[in-house]
Design a protein around this nucleic acid. Structure first.
Lengths: 178, 178
DNA sequence: CATAATACTGTCCTGCAGGACAGCATTACG
DNA sequence: CGTAATGCTGTCCTGCAGGACAGTATTATG
């Protein structure tokens, strides 16, 4: 592993050509590209490497969810992750053993459990974002303050609206049209 | 399955509280939220259901990558997906059997193979995005045309810059700092 | 107060994601 | 022209993701 040629073929790869995307706007194409970029092993590998080595993907996702939504019950978590309850139980068990989350009985319904991030868990969850934060800073380097503000505000609005939209989609139910 | 109570607990869940995110801006938090939303089983389930039933997740991802980047060689694909070459071979084999992609020898290096979407594959890959497109339309329903334009342009710029940034990150290598 | 329904956990088990390796082209190097 | 390096595919194999199910605690229903 001495003189390993590292420069891949990034150069020859043409980034998204908007003409390939016959959509109402190029917005979806770009949002998708964003997600592809974020999900690429280059980025995810870095992130997992950063965030306390031993976090497997579901734990990682769980921390993100807890940071985003606050305390959640295992069932909600299972819903969100799309896995069975017993599997969630195991994930949470691991995270609890690592001292990243805490279980407590829901005072409203003492059958239920609330999963909450411990301070260490918040730290870890934020650590997950640390690289992203640096990346974003780097990306925004050439931007004017007003462009940043504008983009931030629009993204915020978009996310708010999207949350509403998805909630409506859920209410409509998931059965596909006949 | 008669009177199944479907309304989850969407209501009680407070969406992203920006104060939880001690970042330079709320941008990262919102971009992350966007990705969490997109990755949620509610959305992904819909998308997979739409797009010709039988697409498993890696195939799905492969189609997205091919649509985004054009023809790719299996090694590049393996790189991008973060899996081994032999596994890619299997995925591509399945897609080829379904008539969605086509293998051809790379004229530049006849050892190598180029994977390209067939017309049917392009169709399928676009189908993957169809729901997203509808969702975005719905989300943007209340937006003014100029806000949409502004947001689209800013997102495009952001993605372009991010692509550059990630390319630079790759060149720097992936070794974590000591 | 008895029975049923809901929320979680622990144990057991299976399928298959996905790597290791060998094999077959093609190209690069001396 | 021989030997090594590179690109892909097929076969074989394993680990573990993650479900089914039974068990326990709490709450709802009549």
């Amino acid at each position: 592993m001495a003189d390993e040629d590292e420069d891949h073929d990034t150069e020859r790869r043409r980034p998204l050509n908007a003409d390939d995307f016959p959509y109402r706007s190029t917005l979806l194409a770009n949002l998708s590209a964003l997600i592809l970029l974020w999900d690429s092993p280059a980025v995810q590998g870095q992130i997992l490497a950063k965030s306390g080595e031993s976090l497997d993907q579901p734990s990682h996702q769980t921390l993100r969810l807890l940071l985003a939504w606050g305390s959640l019950r295992p069932t909600a978590l299972a819903d969100e992750l799309g896995v069975g309850a017993s599997y969630v139980s195991k994930i949470v068990g691991r995270l609890e053993a690592d001292g990243l989350v805490q279980r407590s009985t829901d005072p409203d319904d003492r059958r239920a459990t609330l999963i909450t991030l411990t301070p260490a868990g918040v730290e870890a969850a934020r650590g997950v974002y640390a690289l992203g934060d640096r990346m974003i800073s780097e990306v925004l380097e050439g931007w004017s303050a007003s462009d940043i503000d504008r983009y931030t505000a629009l993204t915020e609005r978009f996310v708010d609206d999207a949350i509403g939209s998805i909630a409506r989609m859920r209410e409509r139910g998931l059965r596909p049209p006949p």
